[in-house]
Structure formats: C-alpha cells, structure tokens
Design a protein around this nucleic acid. Sequence first.
DNA 1: GTTCGGATAAACACGC
DNA 2: TGCGTGTTTATCCGAA
Length: 226
Amino acid sequence: MEKHTQALPPHSPLHSPRSDSEALSRSPSLPQPAAVQLTSFPSSRTTPASDLYSAPRASGGSHCLSPSTVSDQDDLTCLSWLHQRGNLLPLQPLPKITTLPQTLDPIPVQQLLSSTDKPPYSFSSLIFMAIEDSPEKRLPVKGIYQWIVDNFPYYREAPGGWRNSVRHNLSLSKSFQRIHRDKSQSVGKGSLWRVCPEYRPALLEVLRKTHYCHHTNSSLLNKRVL
DNA sequence: GTTCGGATAAACACGC
DNA sequence: TGCGTGTTTATCCGAA
C-alpha cells in the first residue's frame, strides 16, 4: 500500500504518543459545572437497578466508594449517578455549548431519543462505564463488549468494527490497564482490564460533561418544543 | 491553516 | 487451523 505521507502524521502515535491520555490527565483542572443534576435522569432500562445494585457488592466494593451522601453526589469520584441505568441511554450527538447555565431542568431522555441512536459517548467513556459498572471494577474485553451491547442497542446492530475500536482504545489509552491473569503473562485470551486510578477523575469528568451537555440540550429542547 | 482528539480500518502477532 | 485478543499503524473527520 502506498504511503501518502512523507513525514509522520501530526497525531501519529509515533509523533505524539499517548496524547489522548495526556489530555485526559490535564482535564481535572477544568472548571466544574455549577449544578450538574445527573441524578434526575430516568431510571432503569435493560436491567432493573434493584437487580444489579441492591445486592451487596464484593468485598471492598461499595460501588460509589462510600455511603451516599449529598456531598458524595457532588464528588468527582462518585459514580452513583452512573449506576442509575437510565443514565446510560443512547443519546444524540452533543450540542455545542460554550457557556454552562447555572440551573438545569432535565427531562427524561427517552422521550426525545430513539434507542438506536448512536451514543454520544466516546469509546473511552463506554469502556470506563463498563468497567466501573462491574462489581470487581475489572472486565475482560468480552465483558466490555457485552456491557456495551446490553446498554446501547445501537451497537447491537452496528457492524463489528466498533469492537476493534474498543480494543484499539484499550491498547492505546493510558487510562486503562491490562491485568494479567495468574499464569498467562503473555498476550492471549482472557486478560482483564481496569481503569487506572490516576486517570479515573479525568474520565469521570469527561463523562459528566457529556451527560451535562446532553442534559442541557434536552432541557432547552423541552422548553422550546413542548 | 494547524493541531488535536476520536473513530475507523487494517495488518499482524500471539495464545487457546 | 480458526478465532479471539492485543498492538500498532494509517487515515479521515470534526472541533478548537
């Protein structure tokens, strides 16, 4: 195959390795939205939340790291809002928002969206959600696939290329770590993946912003149309 | 116009 | 041998 570039492309991994993760690592310094009311998304979709989350977690596995309090809900590290399954609906592409309003008036997103829309989440965010949603906070690639198709019907019918993208993201991003299973230290089937703790806040921030942008859009749309 | 992040495709290696 | 997994490279596109 003929190469069209004389030099390395601007964002070639060789030219700018891990630039995505570096960007992520910078993002915690980004300003926080003043009022992110993520908890008001509709609840429960494919699996009843009670089925998934009412049971005691594995040891050390309080899903949100600590008992839920008001301050916890605002904590950047708290994912309790994520575990309301309705939050994970497939959403429309995000609007461009330059300024963040101080108040939100969210409405259920199912009223506006088709379940077959492509989710606005990046693959990194999808992987992050999948792993965070697992009791052990670690998943094999297959488990990540499964979580995505379970939660986003779009990927149920999408061609298989997205799986390649998932693997590509896992390999390329510093945000995710491969955990070798006991014996097989080499590349092969069955490695587990987890979120690097140091990148978790950044991933969470990206996710919250995605929610926030869509949320705001839905709210505005609701007020304008309905 | 440039840079960057993300998505996608493809090739390849490896292990089961 | 085939398939799934993991890595790497290349390219395209949209946004900043």
